[in-house]
């Protein structure tokens, strides 16, 4: 008994992952490597292929091509011992509604006994803040409580790798904040690697140490929230009014551009504004273009901004 076999290499290693449904390419050569520990967010607009990617990593979906290793094993060949090393929290789970909360945790923990030292049900209830609901039937929980139970079931076998697929979809701000606090508590526990998918940049910035942006079937940006923000912010947008017309110019060196502009305008420039593009601006532009069906140009424009 003990923890799932720790692998020496990265928790997740993917190269040139491809997925085709019919004649539609969803993933077109996705490369990705995640070292053990920490929270990584896979961020992308709806329909970018986040769920497909994570289902391939979870071993729930066969891929069309490429090489995938999760905890050192190809998910297609993952056995029960490999499965015991994973925790999975899906978007909307309504399973086992008639069970009582504590019974469910206690029973499901037993499945992990041959592979790990599972959480004690009451300690886990305390961790996810469901002690008061222990004797309630699962179907009577609120949406936020239910998702916290899903997290409890995801980590009950002390997984080396935890998948969270769009964990806060449909939450009100309060439930969302409580959920974020729970994820922070999980990262303090032990070296569990967490991969979360979200379409919400704000959530990714709050929770993750590393953000991977998925669009157009591959990873188009990769870095810490800070790094991504800095690279996005190198471009500035300058607006002014001259001869009664609005002028807009994008530049990497705002100071120099403004100096030259004011030196040569003869006093006609008014309403000058310098606006630094934030990561949010860049991301929202990407999402808007993506939803308008201009996936390729969206990706190119975003790359120009962040690299």
């Amino acid at each position: 008994m003990g923890h799932p076999p720790a692998c020496d290499g990265p928790a997740i290693a993917v190269s040139d992952l491809r997925m085709r449904y019919g004649d539609k390419d969803v993933l077109t050569g996705l490369d990705l490597e995640i070292e053990p520990g920490g929270v990584t967010a896979l961020l992308g607009p709806n329909g970018a292929g986040k769920t497909t990617t994570i289902e391939i990593l979870e071993g729930f979906r066969a891929r069309s091509g490429g090489d995938v290793r999760v905890l050192g094993v190809d998910p297609v060949n993952g056995g029960e011992a490999w499965r015991a090393g994973l925790g999975i929290v899906l978007q909307e789970w309504r399973d086992n509604g008639k069970w009582k909360v504590r019974d469910l945790l206690r029973h499901f923990g037993e499945y992990y006994l041959p592979y790990a030292d599972p959480w004690d049900a009451d300690a886990l209830l305390d961790l996810v803040g469901l002690t008061a609901q222990a004797s309630q039937r699962v179907q009577t929980l609120s949406g936020g409580q239910r998702r916290r139970l899903d997290v409890a079931l995801g980590i009950i076998g002390r997984p080396a790798l935890l998948f969270l697929d769009e964990p806060t979809t449909g939450f009100d701000p309060h439930a969302r904040r409580e959920f974020h606090e729970l994820i922070h508590r999980l990262t303090d526990l032990d070296g569990t690697t967490i991969l979360l998918t979200t379409h919400d940049l704000d959530e990714a910035e709050k929770l993750a140490e590393r953000i991977l942006i998925l669009a157009g079937g591959r990873i188009i940006a990769d870095g810490s929230p800070d790094k991504l923000a800095r690279s996005a912010a190198t471009t500035a947008e300058i607006k002014w009014i001259q001869d009664g017309r609005l002028q807009i110019h994008a530049t990497d060196d705002a100071t120099d551009f403004v100096r030259q502009l004011l030196a040569t305008d003869g006093g006609t420039v008014t309403d000058l504004e310098v606006h630094r593009a934030s990561l949010e601006d860049a991301y929202l532009t990407l999402v808007a273009k993506f939803e308008a069906g201009e996936a390729e140009t969206a990706v190119d424009a975003f790359k120009e901004v962040t690299t």
Binding site: L90, D95, N96, Y112, G157
Partner: peptide, 20 residues
């Protein structure tokens, strides 16, 4: 029913869950 509400998928996500 268990395929619609995810009970079966939950079983699949646990070691030995489907047999159980």
């Amino acid at each position: 029913m268990d395929r619609t509400n995810g009970t079966l998928l939950r079983a699949k996500s646990m070691p030995g869950g489907m047999t159980g």
